Structures are given as structure tokens and as C-alpha cells.
Amino acid sequence: MTATTEHLRSRRPRSAAALLGAALCTALLAGVSAGHAATADEARLLAALRKAHPGTQFTEVARTDVEGLYEVWMSGNVAYVSAANPRFFVFGRLFDTQSMRDVTGPRIAQRHADTGGQLQSESVPAAPVPIDQLPLADAIKTVRGSGKRVVAVFSDPNCIYCKQLEPELAGIGDVTVYTFLVPFQGEARPIAIWCAADRERAWRQWMLQADASLLQPNAGCEHPIARNLDLARRLGVQGTPTLIWADGTRTDGYVGRSVLEARLNEAAKVATAKPSSAGKKP
């Protein structure tokens, strides 16, 4: 099976799609079928993925009709993984060229229905955590336009969904984004970003362009990465990205620009109507 790395997807999306389509069509036209359920294999693959990517919430692994190819769910996100080489994730649609059937679409629609119309995993903590309670000095602050709408994001620079989220956030105007770097997949890169001379620019270039030229390896630099990890644990943040809105509610996982706009506007209205809780600690 031809797969594509995150780097290839971000730099050459058309080529990646073409390679994926060719590989899947070849397998499907050959009439390869899974034949029977492989519960033990699914369990082993799920365990292996959770061990390799502790910052990602893998919820289910299911065998597909393509031999060796598994459907992997991460909350509302779906990818395809080869059991022989689970290092690579393929994001896209699985299409049966014999029956001319979109295999992925109905699966997504079913998840959409099961979650009440929300593909992303929304979780509301027992006690909302307004952004003004967070230690904002430990976050990278990015302001666009008036900055009147506010969101805090727990993000890992090694997280593929965080890299998908950043271009969406970059297209939002009149917003202030507080990014808390968390080391769910290793602390070296979060520290190198924080210790950069211009950490906001270093973060942006790494997440949007995979450009590490501004990153500064730790050389006695004071950084909040350990504190951020402790904060994430205390708030029940189990994966990245996790977004905390101005009204204290949160969203776990990647969301698109339209959802970002809607949630920012909704949370801003609610937060404006509430008295400030500044001075309190989470």
C-alpha cells in the first residue's frame, strides 16, 4: 500500500492523493477481501498505536475490505493504517471502484448521527475553566485584528491534528490565541520553540511550513513546558489539540474554520454576559 507522511501531505497534497487512489484502486480491483473479522489483530494494532502516539485519543480500529488496511478512529477523525507499517496514516476516502461506492462516507455519517451531529468530540468539564483563570504568561500569545475573541489551545508541535488546526486558526480574524505547548509526544521540540528568540514566529513557521530554522535547542532557557503538562493534567486535557473557549467550555480535537468561527462568537457572547472570574486559579 502506498502511504504518505504528514510532510508529503502538507507539501504535495495532490501527489499524495493520487498515490493513495492508485494504491486503493489496485487493491480493490484485485478483489481483495478481509474475509473474516480479526478482533485480536485489531486490539493489537490499537494498543500499538496508543503506545506510539500517547497524545492522540485512539478510540477504535476496524478491519477494512482491503487486506492489511485498517480504519482507525481518533474521536471524530478517521484515517487508514497499514498493519504492516502503522507509522504512516492516510487521510481521505476509501472508494470501491467495482461497486462505485464511497466506503468512508457512510461510516462518517453514522458517527455523525451517533454523536448528535458533531463529528468532533465535545466535552464539558464539571466546572468550566474561563481563560482568565489560566496562567497566560506560560502560553504563546498570537493576536490578529482586534483580538477581541479569545481561545486557549493546548497543542503539541509533534501532533498531526495540531498541524491541521493551525492553518484554520491562521485564517481567523479578530482573535487572540493563547497556545500552551504540551510535551505529550516529547519535550525537545516544545522547549526549542519556546526558547526561540521569536517564539510566536518560530511556532508559526514550524506548524505551517515545517520550518525548524528558528527553533532554539534548550541551553539553560527558562520554559513552562513542565508546568503546562501539569496544568493539562489538572484540567483533564488528555489529547491535543484541546481548545478552551472564552466561556470555559472546551472542544477536544481538530475543528474546521466554520466551527471555529461559530464557537468563538458563541463563547464570546456567553463570556461577556458573565462577571469576570479573574484572580481565581484552576
Rank of each mutant, 00 (worst) to 15 (best):
A212R: 15
C159N: 05
R189S: 04
I191K: 12
R201T: 08
N158T: 07
G186N: 03
L181D: 01
I172A: 04
A196C: 12
A197Q: 13
P183L: 01
C195G: 00
A197C: 05
Q205Y: 11
A197E: 15
W203R: 09
L169V: 04
V177A: 02
Y161V: 07
M207F: 13
G171S: 01
D198Y: 02
V177Q: 08
D174H: 00
D211R: 10
Q185P: 13
R201Y: 06
F180I: 09
A188F: 08
D174Y: 01
D174W: 00
T176D: 01
P190T: 04
L181F: 04
G186V: 01
A210K: 11
A192P: 08
G186E: 03
A197M: 08
A188M: 04
F184M: 12
I172T: 00
D211S: 02
A192G: 06
D211A: 03
R199Q: 11
D211F: 04
W206F: 09
C195T: 05
G171V: 00
C159A: 12
A170D: 02
Q205E: 14
E168H: 02
F184Y: 15
A197S: 14
A170R: 07
D211G: 07
Q209H: 15
R201Q: 08
T179M: 05
Q185E: 15
E166Y: 13
A202V: 10
N158M: 13
D174A: 02
Q205L: 15
F180M: 01
N158C: 13
A196R: 10
A188L: 04
R189T: 13
R204P: 12
Q209L: 15
A210V: 00
A188S: 09
